[in-house]
Simulated scan of single mutants.
Amino acid sequence: MKALSLPIILATLAAGAVPTAASAEAGDVLLRVRGIYVTPTEDSGDILPAFPGETVSLTDAVAPEFDLTYMATDNVGIELIAATTKHQADGVTGVTGGLGDLVETWVLPPTVTLQYHFAPNSKVRPYVGAGLNYTFFWDEEAQDPLTNAVGPTKVTLSDSFGWALQAGVDIDLNERFFLNLDAKYIDMNTDVELDTTAAGMQTIDVDVNPFVFGVGFGIRL
């Protein structure tokens, strides 16, 4: 009898030592902090009217990102994502390509997604989401190569409204903390205006459309 009870006791102790899943349930709030890598897949129009055929490219960026997810049900969550990144617009060919750095701007794209969590009671919980974003472009500045060529320049970038797609996974570390992997695609565009001293007003239509890849940690509040 003692020989039979020992395995039962050991199994019970082992089960108690396994971390409880940080499962998401209706009413839970999940807070995540990620490091993100933002890579625009830009499609630039020409710099008009002075530089037809010349376009711009946008630099990648790394930044922290914060988000809150409210679980409306065990499977459905509503997430608010906030981060800001700095990017440069560089000339690609011709005269502006020879200048290099043209414009620098900060980008703030608050995004709300509606998520579906496939396995809310599992230790590995994949999810997908879709939603909307409104992007603010702020602290726009002309860079030295541009102002040296055409004089003082006022830069304006229009804000953007678009959609977003998301996929990710939460992986439990213990009953409250979890690892998060996340990827998003954000529909984003802007009209760039360069009010230059020597060349007058120049405009560029840029579809930014970045992929955002994130790795971080979360906590169930």
Rank of each mutant, 00 (worst) to 15 (best):
M1D: 07
K2N: 06
K2H: 08
L4Q: 10
S5Q: 12
S5Y: 08
L6G: 11
P7L: 10
P7F: 07
I8P: 01
L10G: 04
A11W: 04
T12N: 09
T12V: 04
T12Y: 03
L13M: 09
A14D: 09
A14I: 11
A15V: 08
G16M: 12
A17K: 09
T20A: 15
A21E: 10
A21M: 11
E25T: 15
E25V: 14
G27Q: 13
V29E: 10
L31D: 11
G35N: 05
I36M: 05
T39E: 06
P40M: 07
T41H: 02
E42P: 05
S44Q: 08
S44W: 04
L48G: 04
G53P: 02
T55I: 07
V56K: 00
V62M: 08
V62N: 06
P64C: 02
L68K: 05
T69R: 08
A72E: 04
D74S: 09
V76K: 05
I78D: 05
E79K: 14
L80P: 05
I81L: 13
A82K: 03
A83I: 04
T84H: 03
K86E: 15
Q88G: 14
D90E: 13
G91Q: 00
G97D: 02
G98D: 06
G100P: 07
D101V: 00
T105G: 02
W106T: 06
T111A: 11
T111Y: 09
H117R: 15
H117G: 11
F118H: 13
A119C: 15
P120L: 10
S122I: 14
S122A: 15
K123Y: 12
V124G: 13
Y127I: 15
Y127E: 14
Y127N: 14
G129D: 12
A130K: 06
A130Y: 05
G131T: 09
Y134C: 09
Y134S: 08
T135L: 05
W138D: 15
W138F: 15
E140L: 03
E140G: 07
D144F: 00
P145T: 03
T147K: 00
A149T: 05
T153C: 04
K154N: 12
K154P: 02
L157N: 03
D159H: 10
S160Q: 03
F161M: 10
F161R: 06
F161K: 06
W163I: 10
W163L: 12
L165S: 09
G168P: 08
D172L: 06
D172W: 04
D172G: 10
D172R: 03
E175P: 00
R176S: 04
F178G: 02
L181A: 11
D182F: 04
A183I: 13
I186E: 01
D187C: 04
D187N: 07
D187S: 07
N189R: 07
V192N: 01
E193Q: 12
D195R: 07
T196A: 03
A198Y: 13
A198W: 11
A198R: 12
Q202Y: 04
T203F: 00
D205N: 10
V208W: 00
F211I: 12
V212N: 05
V212S: 06
F213W: 11
G218I: 06
I219V: 14
